[in-house]
Design a protein around this nucleic acid. Sequence first.
DNA 1: TTGAGAATGAGATTTATTCTCAGAATTAAC
DNA 2: GTTAATTCTGAGAATAAATCTCATTCTCAA
Lengths: 143, 143
Amino acid sequence: MGNENLVFEKYLVSKGLKLTKPRKIILNTVFATHEHFNVDELYDQIRKKHKDVSRATIYRTIPLLVEAGLIKQSLRCLAKDHYEHTYGHNRHLHLICEKCGKIIEVESKETENILNKLAKKHNFNIKEFNIGAKGICNKCRKK
Amino acid sequence: MGNENLVFEKYLVSKGLKLTKPRKIILNTVFATHEHFNVDELYDQIRKKHKDVSRATIYRTIPLLVEAGLIKQSLRCLAKDHYEHTYGHNRHLHLICEKCGKIIEVESKETENILNKLAKKHNFNIKEFNIGAKGICNKCRKK
DNA sequence: TTGAGAATGAGATTTATTCTCAGAATTAAC
DNA sequence: GTTAATTCTGAGAATAAATCTCATTCTCAA
């Protein structure tokens, strides 16, 4: 219940685009939970209430949400792109279990600081961090 | 010219698999350069010399190379999976330019140490790091 | 109210990757 | 060397996520 709506509308207007009903529905469904999501999950979720929003529109709206700084592309899992919130969420890194797919989110300003330093050395302007590791989680290791 | 061949053969034998001609060709082409690659690039490279290696075999061999610890899945660029060497190469992180696609490779043991600590806290067993950032490179920023 | 441009749904299309299958290669035992 | 059991292979079909097309509908400023 932040003002994603405001942010999104501002972005759209600045590009000469419109905050239409389907776009509102998509935005609100995306921000109805805090979870990562992929297009299929989002589509199913939306379809529970709104039978008139198409996959095409979802695929077309996601890049707008990304551009507006509301979400970002996250992991790729089972051949599908996944997304996560950036607006209203602290940045975090991911520990992904290769066995069960579980995602552990951990905050770490430290790693970002180091990356920032390294980027400076290379005259590189960081827009977005992508930090994580794959491995085996606690539960799966015990099996 | 390390002994990727030996490593690969050892791995294959341990799984009851065979180091066949196509697999040798693929392995050697992969290790003929130090560059990241995707399947198309690898296929073209191989086809210059060997008209009889199919895409299917390349797709089937890559997971074996990954499992053998010789390469790892790296970035995904333009809807294609990319791979990079792990055998014989120090680990590094990637700064990826969103404009021109340039990839800057940087070493950083520091970030890995931090991730290791965090993983310990969560009883997570890291198999592979995935560290990087997207942004704008020096050249593109000047435009 | 209206008109110009933007947005939509439906379904076709694209394309990386995976699968199928009949024949070929491999390897160990004889 | 032959054989037999198994693994591999190439070719092309199949799959499926993501993109595109297009005729129609919506939006909003004037």
